[in-house]
Design a binder for these strands. Sequence first.
RNA 1: GGACAGGUGGCCGAGUGGUUGAAGGCGUCGGUCUCGAAAACCGAUAUACCGGCAACGGUAUCGAGGGUUCGAAUCCCUCCCUGUCCGCCA
Length: 427
Amino acid sequence: MHDLKSIRDDAAAFDQALSRRGVAPVSAEILDLDTKRRAAQTELQELLALRNERSKAIGMARGKGLPVEALMAEVASIKDRVAGLEVSERELGDVLETKLAAIPNLPDPSTPEGKDEHDNVLVRSWGEPAKLSFTPKQHFELGEGLGQGVGSLMDFGRAAKLAGARFTVLKGPLARLERALAAFMLDLHTGEFGYTEVVPPALVNDQTMFGTGQLPKFADDQFKTTDGRWLIPTAEVPLTNLTADEIIEEKDLPLRWTAYTPCFRMEAGAAGRDTRGMIRQHQFSKVEMVSVVHPDLSEAEHERMTHCAEAVLQRLGLPYRVMLLCTGDMGFGARKTYDIEVWLPGQGTYREISSCSNCGEFQARRMKTRLRPKEGKGTRFVHTLNGSGLAVGRTMVAVLENYQQEDGSIRVPDALIPYMGGLERIR
RNA sequence: GGACAGGUGGCCGAGUGGUUGAAGGCGUCGGUCUCGAAAACCGAUAUACCGGCAACGGUAUCGAGGGUUCGAAUCCCUCCCUGUCCGCCA
């Protein structure tokens, strides 16, 4: 959500920043609505002031036993005009809100301009893709080769029977691998990086989805329940909204939260993409990191958070690269995003496994999350950040493909062996 | 799901139609006192928006949204949430 004052102050700069994202100029329309709404508001408030003043006078006159008929007639005439102005002020305000709510965040100056993922910029890479003496398999070939029949460790067929396409059933050591990965990630983020573990609701209301920017624009990407709630597409939604409608003391910042939750996505626009395997599912689990920070510190926090996500891959020995997303590939609420892409030997390519975004005050304005500074008066909007630390399903894919052996078995990464009850090889 | 009781400022809590943004207390901040601290005393202490260069003025907000009224924290309706009891249940 954008600050009307900032659009008023420099409409050209606002439109220019939006144009970097390929969004057509909107400031003229917004400012026109804003002007009309403020005019209605000012007139309304003047009338209300008059009404309040006269009403008080009625009360005082009554107290003194003086006649009040003339005053009452005057207030009655004000009332009709108030009703009309209230309607037009509200309608103008609603239109304005609707327009504003659909405008994406402005890109940070350091976000490169570009059309799509081809214009993303390589920031750094870590690890060397292993040179294998055999032709590596893709994760689903490996997974489906483990176990047989109803004992299959990675079972897409029975998942389809239970729920349809884009679901997976994991069993035995692969089911445990999912749990091991999640526990390993949570231990790292809580034990070494200062995040507090949270178990949030996986179902949230409209307001919560609005706060982080999923609504109103992206309703079609979400699952909605019959009682009007939404299945979270990411734990970013409940974690970030923990601070909604709050004024936080500066001394209590930064807030750093992590949660392991299922995530649900329609994948409406992804027909035909990643149809095999568990890269793109309607349900997947993810360990998410969220930070709520003082506005002056969000850039540093963004770098820090990205390193926290990278640390997971480093300890698992999985090669990756960090990409700075261009304006055209960035999400609705972000002003700057790093994607971490892990090397998948079976696919012979890097695939996204984490996305770390600085949303600036964009979400804070939608949520009404402010901070009270130690010094000085008033409040400021906080900055919010979120990042995957990491997508658990995709991390499993990466482990399978990078640790595969020629016989189709999977070596367990050293860091995970304790979490696997000492198991060193999945076969 | 049923019955009852509630939802007031950072917290506790008063307030059942009139000059109440809201008594009182606690907390917090500033000051007096003190070598310093405690205590005591004095003062300050919500948010958003509108108008204004500013000083300042105004509007709204007592869970949310409607309604009644000249005027609503106070009366009516709907919804949400909390508590207690009952039912059910992982």
